[in-house]
Structure formats: C-alpha cells, structure tokens
Design a protein around this nucleic acid. Structure first.
Lengths: 146, 146
DNA sequence: TTCATATAGTTGTTTAACTAACTATATGCC
DNA sequence: GGCATATAGTTAGTTAAACAACTATATGAA
C-alpha cells in the first residue's frame, strides 16, 4: 500500500524545491555582487569542466542533468563569454570536446569559495548528522526517478 | 568557525536540487501522459488557489516563491487556458483577485492524485523518520536564506 | 560495400525566471 | 487638498528548459 507520508500541505514544497532554489538565488546574488557576469547554470557547466577539462557535450548533459539543446546553448553562451572553446574530436568527428580558457581557470577559486560560503549560510544551525540524512534521502529520490 | 560539511564533490547537487527537478519532471510527464495541457508552474499556482480561491497576485507571489512578473505571465497563460480569471478588487483597485473557473476546479482531484503518486514513487524505500529529518533540514535552509 | 540504425550535436518554438523600468492606485503627512 | 512615498501589477529584454525535428558522422550486419 502507498505510504501516506505526504499530506497536501507539505507536498508542494517538496515538488518545487524551494530550498535549492533559495540556495541558487543566494549564490547568484553573490556572483552579481562580486561583479561576475555569470549565471548559475553557466557556473554549473564550468564546475564539471574544472573537475575534468575536455568533456564532450554529451558528458556535460549527463553530469549536469540537462538535455542536449540546453547544453548546446549554455556552451554557446560560455563561448561568447570567452570562458570555453569547442574543439572537434579527431577520432570521432561527431563529438565536440569543451575546453576551459585561462579566463575560466581563474574563476574557479573565487566562485567555489562563494559556493561554499553560500552552503555554510544555508546550513547554519543544522547538525552534521541531519545533513547526512538529508543528502541520502535526496540521493534515493534522485535514483528512484532517474 | 565554518562547518566544512561540504566538500567539492557534494556541493553541486545541493545547489542544483537534482532531486526536486527529478520530481517535477516526473510529475510533468504524468500530466502529459494524462493529456493534461498544463505545466508544473501553472499547476503550482492552481495548487494555492485550490487551498484558497481569490488570492491576489501578490499573495500568489509569496505563496509560490516567485516574483511579480512571473506571476503576471503565469496568470496570463492560465487565463488563456480558461483556468482562472482576474477580477479587480472593489476596495483596492490596484489588486487583482484570481478566481478558479469550473474547468480548473475539475482538475484538482486528478492532478493532486498524480502529485501524490509521484511523491510515493520518489520516496519509495525511504523510512518516514528520515523523510521528516530531510523536510526539517530543507525548511531550515529555506528559512536561513529567505 | 551499402544500407539501416544509433549517436552527437543544432535549430525552432513555447514557457518560464530575473532584472529593470514603467503605470496606476492608495496612504499619510504637511 | 496636495504631494511624497509605498504598493500592485505590467512590459521589455536576456537567459534558460523542454520538446520536436533536423544534420552529420559512426557502426554493424547483409
């Protein structure tokens, strides 16, 4: 039988993800205040390239949980900002590998610092063990649905 | 001192809210499969009107955590779909009160059923006490940042 | 080798979010 | 009453997401 943990009044905020929206907005504000002309979505692509430069667009789709048109356009805008460049693969000409520019490499330390700052603000007053439980629940939700 | 619960590898998924995005996508698919021509964002407005019909646009902003232009356009589109209508307030002519049509009233039971179904799928295998911890953490995050 | 199929990426269209700038109405102080 | 200020809502411009349809390249079987 279905578990009825969710009554109507609580259902909405789980679906809309208010907490993560609030985190993203706070981080965006920090970027703006710091004079960084960068959206959170653009940052999320750079984030995965900092972990491993030269990912293909398809790999960025998987990593960022976005579809191909979304990545095409994010990479378009990142190229306009001179933060990445597309390089066609030699071995498989269907593939674009995306490489960070020096400008983007310089952004890593500053933006990751702002991101950590944001999370510390968000999680102020929450004990570490509860954060762990929360993370594990969200991971299961993601795995259940993907 | 700052809590360093977040190492780089875990930071991203908290900011991007993959779990809630996955829930919203699943619910949207259910709407589409059921032949409902309705976005999750439009549904989220109806949701708050089902709780209390005749809210003003500003009240919908607060309830849905959106800004005024977003609500203006969502109400525009809901009016085009014949699901709500704007009624100028008699006592304060700046205010529009938004009322559900009969068509929208009919959608409540079906869509709330699909939403509950979605959450049950998302939370399958998660014990109730962990869900409670997760909800409370997300609430604190939201309160910390708003 | 050739043709069907799969994969990588792009383009067009609609909906939505954020910011900034705007109009209209209400409130409150002088 | 009149004017400054606040509040409710709209409009314009940019970025992004979902979906469908498309091009180009690679793979694999006959």
């Amino acid at each position: 039988m279905p578990n009825n943990q969710f009554k109507k009044g609580e259902l909405y905020s789980f679906i809309t993800g208010k907490a993560s929206i609030a985190i993203a907005r706070r981080l965006q504000k920090k970027f703006n205040t710091a004079g960084l002309n960068l959206t959170i979505e653009q940052w999320s692509v750079l984030y995965h390239l900092w972990k491993e430069d030269g990912k293909s667009q398809q790999e960025l789709c998987n990593a960022t949980f976005r579809d191909k048109p979304s990545i095409t356009r994010l990479v378009d805008n990142l190229e306009k900002l001179q933060l990445v460049k597309r390089v066609a693969s030699e071995s498989d000409r269907r593939i674009n590998r995306i490489y960070l520019t020096k400008l983007a490499q310089k952004l890593q330390e500053q933006t990751m610092g702002l991101a950590e700052e944001t999370l510390n603000e968000a999680l102020g007053g929450v004990p570490a063990d509860k954060i762990d439980v929360c993370k594990s629940v969200l991971q299961i939700v993601y795995d259940n649905l993907k």
